[in-house]
Design a protein around this nucleic acid. Structure first.
Lengths: 206, 206
DNA sequence: ATGATGTTTAACAATTTTGTTAATGCAAAT
DNA sequence: ATTTGCATTAACAAAATTGTTAAACATCAT
């Protein structure tokens, strides 16, 4: 009897694939059902509507989405710059293992912003907390002459830009990057190192 | 009698707005027509199908798309780093005046990659030319001890990431950036300067 | 005025897509 | 074995969306 669980699950996974690639508007319930190997009536049986199925996919990914956005300014107990390095690195890794998520999510926010108000409220407050904590540290460190001063939000934007954009643009970049992307793993390593290096140099006192 | 021209034009402009925000799948021909203040039969009269209307929008933007992707590695006659600065700056400006374009285009490429093969072919060859030219310069400059060495493609990815992503993520970021975005113009100036500074420091010999 | 030409409208047709339902199947509990 | 409850199917219905058409309208050159 694990077939029951399995079909419901299968539909959800197929929905995730389809929504991630085609977005809410481009996804077709019949196509999702076909992917899962069931009739489309089954999809409605388990999830009622396309909208509700979509919500289930969002729910399943919401904590990942938040991690994808915010794990880059960290909190572990180390000197500031080391901590930042670790945070950037683990942020990059999260994105690398969910490469479709950022584009999907930005897409949805742009095309149907109303839907995400409550989520944005949460993100807003936790973002502001993080930024002000980090800003205090930056102020201290730069006063002590350890780093160059920067607005924490600007630093955040740079890190997220460097870490997310390559994945968003990957389908586009593949063709023009020659052999750079032939070995995925090695490219990811290089890119991660490059992003860390870029941020470190931005902060280094000269 | 400029009403004739005007309606055809109006439909195209409305289509651009709608396609940019909602993508091909999310856009509705009736909604585009309503935006333009005409019946949807008019839309079909002038552009036959949604697909053809979409193609006209793409055609209208294709050179801009290419500029958006490639004007960041420049060619003017100045010392390398100065030239790079100017290129990053003008690249940023192009994106800033067409903030919806990058997301729209990446979106389309991800959801319907087949459509863009010919365009990708062109981009591929011109990209490779630019990269190899720039790489030669980087090799020279770093051999002379003027800059830190970097793979030209990695440099390109960093520049494009820093310059494009903030615009792609803007609807998302608005809420959590506090007063940073209150004055658009001043934010854009700051951000452009920040991106240039970040790249310059990445290349500066220490 | 007439005819030729392109524009506009309203009504309709076709298709696609989402969602429902009633009947059937199937497995476990009584 | 019968009931109970969920799972499954196929056929159908409703709505949304794209696309067509025939007729009315306007404009301009003759």
């Amino acid at each position: 009897m694990q077939d029951k669980v399995s079909k419901e699950q299968l539909i959800l996974e197929s929905a995730e694939q389809e929504f991630f690639i085609k977005g809410f508007d481009g996804a077709r319930t019949t196509s999702i059902a076909k992917r899962a190997g069931v009739t489309h009536a089954m999809l409605h049986y388990y999830y009622r509507t396309k909208e509700q199925l979509f919500e289930r996919v969002i729910d399943k990914n919401v904590s990942l989405i938040i991690a994808t956005m915010f794990s880059s300014l960290g909190k572990a107990d180390m000197p500031f710059l080391d901590r930042l390095k670790v945070s950037i690195s683990s942020h990059f890794d999260i994105v690398a293992s969910n490469p479709l998520l950022p584009h999907f999510f930005l897409n949805e926010i742009i095309s149907r912003p109303e839907r995400y108000n409550m989520m944005q409220n949460k993100l807003e407050t936790s973002a502001k907390e993080i930024f002000s904590k980090v800003q205090i540290e930056i102020d201290e460190q730069s006063k002590q002459g350890n780093i160059e001063w920067i607005d924490a939000r600007m630093l955040f934007m740079s890190i997220v830009s460097l870490n997310l954009f390559p994945f968003i643009a990957l389908p586009f970049a593949k063709r023009m990057m020659g052999d750079l992307l032939d070995n995925q793993d090695s490219f990811l390593e290089q890119r991660k190192a490059e992003n860390i290096e870029t941020i470190m140099r931005r902060l280094k006192k000269q």
